[in-house]
């Protein structure tokens, strides 16, 4: 609180004070009292007044300054009421009380949406469990009645399965609570699972796959990584170059402080200005919009979000019209080692 703005608030008091002093002076002149009294009385009154407002300024300034400092330090500013000391003056008390009441009502409101979201997520999870049963049955029917028609249906069923998975992880990515278990998982097993998931595309489109040095363990939730890798691999399949022999290389490099999994393809690549935006929600880019690719802009966005939750770094670099490489960096932190199961 600036002293000038504080004084500005007191302007009426000051004007009135000087009016009063003027009136007193008139009386003093009428009764013709001594010069000392004429000076002494207004001086005492002025002094008393200004000492009074100086003290007031000191107290209020100290209080509000502390409030601003606390606000600056806080990341979640709505918590300021908890850290605010009781004020010795009425306005401060009103302020604290107001903030507390606002906080309370805001919390109630936020909680309402939290519960709604939690509820919705539970519904989605349940729905996904339910839908998987008819999906499994359909796949079994296809398996028991193999012909060209059911083979086509099977391919469509696989697409449905992927969309369902995406919905499940989208719901999971939006919750605050921990939804995963970190334990020792073998990268090779995870990668094999993902390759098998996309077996049909790989074989039909004659895409080469080169997996190297992946027999290493990382501490993570393998189900989540299967999902993330699947999104990345599906992008590589989707955005491959028709005119060259498509190839996907997967290689793990063990460093001192981390393990980096590289997934590199020789596909369409991403334009220079667009690389930074691939993890944004709904970003489709030049490749997504042309070529009839039906890009949703959700896949990589979800990958990033899930990686953030798992404490994995995800990076993407690309040379346009040449290659794209995604790197997953698994940290070797001692904390994660402790939670190993």
């Amino acid at each position: 609180m600036k002293f000038t703005s504080f004084l500005k608030d007191k302007i009426l008091q000051i004007v009135l004070l000087f009016c009063a002093l003027g009136t007193i002076q008139i009386f003093l002149i009428i009764y013709d009292l001594g010069i000392y009294i004429k000076i002494y009385i207004p001086l005492v009154i002025l002094l008393a007044y200004f000492v009074g407002i100086l003290v007031e300024y000191y107290i209020k300034n100290k209080y509000y300054k502390k409030l601003y400092e606390t606000l600056d330090k806080l990341e979640e500013k709505y918590l300021v009421a908890e850290l605010l000391n009781g004020a010795s003056f009425a306005e401060g008390k009103i302020l604290k009380d107001t903030i507390e009441q606002i906080d309370k009502s805001m919390h109630e409101n936020v909680n309402k949406y939290k519960y709604l979201q939690e509820d919705y997520k539970e519904y989605i999870e349940m729905w996904i469990h339910e839908i998987k049963i008819p999906l499994a049955t359909s796949k079994m029917i296809v398996e028991n009645n193999k012909n060209d028609i059911t083979k086509n249906i099977d391919e469509e069923l696989e697409k449905i399965e992927n969309y369902i998975e995406q919905a499940l992880y989208y719901a999971r990515s939006n919750t605050v609570e921990k939804d995963y278990i970190i334990r020792k998982s073998n990268l090779k097993d995870i990668i094999n699972e993902v390759i098998l998931k996309n077996k049909t595309a790989f074989i039909q489109e004659k895409i080469l796959i080169d997996v190297k040095d992946v027999n290493v363990n990382v501490n993570t939730d393998s189900k989540w990584i299967v999902f993330i890798l699947n999104q990345i691999i599906q992008n590589s399949i989707k955005y491959r170059k028709k005119e060259v022999q498509s190839k996907i290389e997967i290689i793990a490099k063990v460093n001192k402080e981390n393990i980096v999994l590289h997934i590199k393809d020789n596909g369409l690549g991403i334009k220079k200005g667009e690389v930074e935006r691939v993890f944004e929600k709904g970003f489709t880019g030049t490749n997504g919009r042309m070529l009839n690719k039906k890009s949703t802009g959700i896949g990589l966005y979800l990958c990033k979000k899930l990686c953030d939750k798992l404490g994995i770094k995800i990076e993407l670099s690309s040379i346009y019209n040449c290659s794209t490489e995604v790197r997953l960096v698994f940290p070797n932190s001692s904390y994660i080692n402790l939670t190993e199961m």
Binding site: K132, I133, L135, A136, K139, L157, E161, L168, K223, M341
Partner: peptide, 24 residues
């Protein structure tokens, strides 16, 4: 159809030999 690590872990601990999720 429960595709999460917790259920898998519990099942394996209770003595399951494999844990397969639908659609398999």
């Amino acid at each position: 159809s429960r595709a999460n690590e917790l259920d898998e872990l519990i099942s394996i601990n209770y003595g399951a030999d494999h844990y397969v999720t639908k659609p398999f």
